[in-house]
């Protein structure tokens, strides 16, 4: 009797576990049937193209969460990545506008971005600051530095070659999408298939157990913050291409979408853990739903409420299913 009850409970948990994904897919289907041109290749390209900055930044964030553990408060998190991305965009814009070659500007912004990563790593692994607070503080500080550098002004794209990330095609596939796909595959390989990645997951799963088995956890954690900073650097170029220059204030929306996509991704995964694929799927699905709601012509004053409610439902279901299990 007891066994069958447990069995039923398990089945229920599995069902609830799949609900987030089912809800998202059902909504997409609804949008697809009601919105003109939604289920087309062109729209798929659009969804992917618009999700690129988020996809890039969630690669960094999911690595950090995997190594530091997925407790939102005490685990690994890097909220500074969006600020690093706009710092890269800001430095590149200011320098190329001033007539510097793109390569020099890119080099300078790479150094600046990696410096952000180093400071994050030191604050978290040496000073033992809570990652949530340390990286939130860094977010504010880096945005501040960027405001000084750019004087908070819009700067049009001075290095035309960056626009190829937006408009060029390779074998009929948009160059930007292709590059991000390659980066995503590489990230998947290193984070989920390599020894380094397995150590990372072990560290995030149980820090003590990992240390006992000889894994240098602090070093790994520090490396993930450097990776996140590097992804911020890459994201910066895609943001420049997307906005045809530097537009102040893009970090806030990116931060929100990055965090949402990463933890939504966990809700989609059967074991409720943050993975690169989950995070990327989360980023793409959020973009798809957003575009879908716009395409149907939903009242703009309702869009945020609908998106917010959807996310709360998905995350709540994920929490319920974990408790049932």
């Amino acid at each position: 009797m007891q066994v069958s009850a447990r069995h039923q409970k398990h089945r229920l948990a599995t069902l609830v576990g799949f609900l987030p994904l089912i809800i998202f897919l059902a909504l997409l289907l609804y949008v697809g049937l009601n919105a003109p041109n939604f289920m087309t290749v062109v729209n798929l390209k659009l969804v992917l193209a618009q999700s690129l900055p988020v996809v890039l930044s969630v690669i960094g964030l999911s690595a950090v969460v995997m190594a530091g553990g997925d407790d939102v408060v005490s685990g690994g998190i890097d909220l500074s990545t969006p600020a690093t991305a706009v710092l890269c965009a800001g430095i590149v814009s200011v320098m190329t506008t001033a007539g510097q070659p793109l390569l020099i500007a890119a080099g300078a912004s790479l150094i600046a971005c990696m410096l952000v990563g180093v400071v994050n790593a030191v604050l978290i692994t040496r000073l033992r600051m809570a990652p949530l607070l340390a990286t939130l503080a860094m977010f504010v500080a880096v945005v501040g530095i960027n405001n000084v550098i750019t004087a908070r002004k819009r700067l049009n794209l001075a290095a035309e070659s960056i626009a190829s990330l937006r408009q060029d095609f390779v074998f009929g596939i948009p160059l930007g999408i292709l590059l991000v796909a390659v980066l995503a595959l590489l990230a998947y390989h290193f984070l989920h298939r390599s020894k380094w990645g397995l150590n990372l997951q072990a560290a995030g799963g149980s820090r003590d157990a990992a240390e006992i088995s000889g894994i240098r956890v602090d070093r790994l954690v520090a490396q993930t913050y450097l990776l996140a900073a590097f992804m911020g650097f890459v994201t910066g170029f895609f943001m420049l291409a997307r906005a045809n220059g530097y537009s102040p204030g893009a970090q806030d929306n990116l931060m929100l979408e990055m965090v949402l996509a990463t933890f939504l991704g966990a809700a989609f995964s059967p074991r409720r853990i943050v993975t690169v694929w989950g995070a990327i799927l989360g980023a793409v699905l959020v973009a798809a739903i957003s575009i879908g709601l716009k395409t149907i012509g939903v009242n703009v004053f309702w869009t945020d409420l609908i998106k917010g409610a959807l996310i709360v439902i998905v995350v709540a279901l994920s929490a319920i299913s974990e408790r049932v299990q």
Partner: peptide
């Protein structure tokens, strides 16, 4: 006429992207 409204949420990049959505929507 029929309106398809899109709001950039005071983010110029999102506002720009919304034009792609309108174009694809037809």
């Amino acid at each position: 006429g029929t309106v398809v409204p899109v709001d950039g949420g005071r983010d110029n990049q999102v506002h720009a992207d919304n034009h792609d959505v309108l174009m694809n929507r037809g």
